[in-house]
Design a protein around this nucleic acid. Structure first.
Lengths: 215, 215
DNA sequence: CGCCTGATTGAACAGGTTCAAAACCAGTGG
DNA sequence: CCACTGGTTTTGAACCTGTTCAATCAGGCG
């Protein structure tokens, strides 16, 4: 496991409790922890008790099978919140995809906390259930299309989309191999639906076509 | 849309608000609504604003693609609660699988409500994310094994498991066709892992083997 | 400039789907 | 009680999409 640039443990056990900011507050939370690319933020089985807001960078949440197969359930981009669990244990792994900063908040058990967390939990639940439809019933092209549309929306609906993650990550998110992801990108490019500006950024040329494919 | 045996609308718009029972209370909630097999409890796009607890029977929660492909995200058995949404709109369909009774509760916006709902939402989130691993990374035999183990656990861990739903429902839950589901059942039977007592109930003979296959 | 990792492309393969037919089961009526 | 009937499930065979294995290509960093 990688160590974050500023010790995670010391921050989590920080004895001075900062005043509770609004979970939706776009301003940075305190304290902030930094993780280099690939660093583990928490592991499955670890004790939970904090939650996190991405300041910059990107985070992948995933689970593993015994033989190493991996399923990424969500990516979290700047501004998004993650880390809340049904019980005191983390059921998933969280890793920084790139150099990432996350605001860390210890959980209190207040009613306010519930009121703030519930909308986030419900939104996450809806997203997860929508992703089930993609994995259970859509083919490779539809999966990639849905992924690109989602990423574009989360980045403000611009034509140009930044993909902070590798093909491997995309594959493990969409239940595909890297080869298939790569082939689908090529296919979409040849059809003139997208343009590959470089490995990590694409331009959506035919928004409507992509939209239709992914639903 | 099927009409429930006692009108859903009249129950939902019931002007007398019963005292709020504990969401975890195993005793029947009031009022109770009855639905015959296949009846719609709510539809995607409908206004949300109530939640439900299964008294007896079983419920499927699902989403559709434009061409009719269906993904069931969850089954709810007796005692389980469903129907909470991220906003005022239902994002999924809910249908009775068999003759089913559900307790109906109108939502209030209190802090108590948040505190009661949050654990349910978080549990649902964890379940959905675990199901993502099944759909994204497991093959047909592993999916069915995981499903049977889950159903067995939810029925008290007994050897004999009742499957209230059709092969079609199981397929749409596991992202498989009915033919594949049927073939896997046959394969598991031939291996001596399960016995098919009748179409809707199976006996788990080799619990350990099934367990290992599904993880 | 060269190396090393990640991405792309190619060809053979396999698991699950599709299409089709037979078997089974539950419910109904004689 | 049994036969009929409609729908569901099982079984079979051909097919297809995505995987696997392998080689080439590209790009970032020392």
């Amino acid at each position: 496991m990688h160590a974050p640039t500023s010790s995670r443990i010391s921050l989590l056990s920080h004895s001075v409790q900062p005043s509770l900011p609004d979970a939706f507050d776009p301003a940075p939370l305190q304290p902030v922890s930094f993780f280099p690319a690939g660093a583990e933020i928490y592991a499955q089985g670890e004790k939970a008790g904090a939650f996190y807001q991405v300041e910059f960078g990107a985070v992948r949440i995933y689970r593993l099978l015994a033989d190493g197969r991996r399923q990424i359930s969500t990516f979290h981009l700047a501004g998004e919140t993650f880390g809340f669990e049904a019980d005191a244990t983390h059921h998933f792994f969280a890793e920084a995809i790139n150099a990432t900063a996350v605001g860390v908040l210890r959980l209190t058990t207040g009613a306010d906390m519930s009121r703030q967390l519930l909308p986030l939990a419900l939104k996450g639940l809806t997203r997860a259930q929508e992703h089930l439809l993609v994995l259970g019933r859509q083919n490779a092209i539809e999966r990639v299309a849905a992924f690109l549309v989602d990423m574009a929306e989360r980045q403000g609906g611009l034509r140009q989309v930044e993909l902070p993650m590798s093909r491997m990550d995309i594959g493990d998110y969409l239940g595909l191999t890297i080869e298939t992801v790569s082939r689908v990108f090529t296919r979409l490019k040849d059809k003139g639906v997208i343009r590959l500006l470089n490995l990590r950024s694409i331009e959506i040329v035919k928004q409507d076509v992509l939209q239709t494919m992914g639903e």
